[in-house]
């Protein structure tokens, strides 16, 4: 089971805007990106996040799995999450 850690002092605003105090970088997330990011902050696992989204959105499991995979890859490359 994969767990991801979001750097501590990051805040995400309601508009999906992230400011990374350590580097001064800013990021913008769309609605679902924001939701997933908040769930990651709340230390949810990928499985928990997936099942929550599947309940809420009109999407199939495989597509979602692929999109979350891609999203987390992006977050990692932007240093917004680290994997443990």
């Amino acid at each position: 089971m994969k767990t991801f850690i979001v750097p501590e002092n990051i805040a995400i605003s309601d508009s999906g805007f992230i400011f990374l105090p350590s580097t001064g970088e800013t990021f913008t997330l769309n609605e679902l990106g924001k939701q997933i990011f908040k769930l990651l902050q709340a230390k949810k696992t990928i499985e928990e996040i997936s099942s929550e989204i599947l309940k809420e959105y009109d999407i199939d499991t495989l597509t979602l799995e692929r999109d979350i995979e891609d999203f987390i890859l992006r977050l990692k490359s932007l240093n917004l999450v680290t994997q443990v």
Binding site: F27, T28, L29, N30, L32, G33, Y57, D58, F71, R74
Partner: peptide, 14 residues
């Protein structure tokens, strides 16, 4: 109830 319309999660660096 109807489910929300899905858009892939996206992050963009400004």
């Amino acid at each position: 109830s109807a489910k929300k319309i899905y858009e892939r999660p996206i992050v963009t660096k400004n």
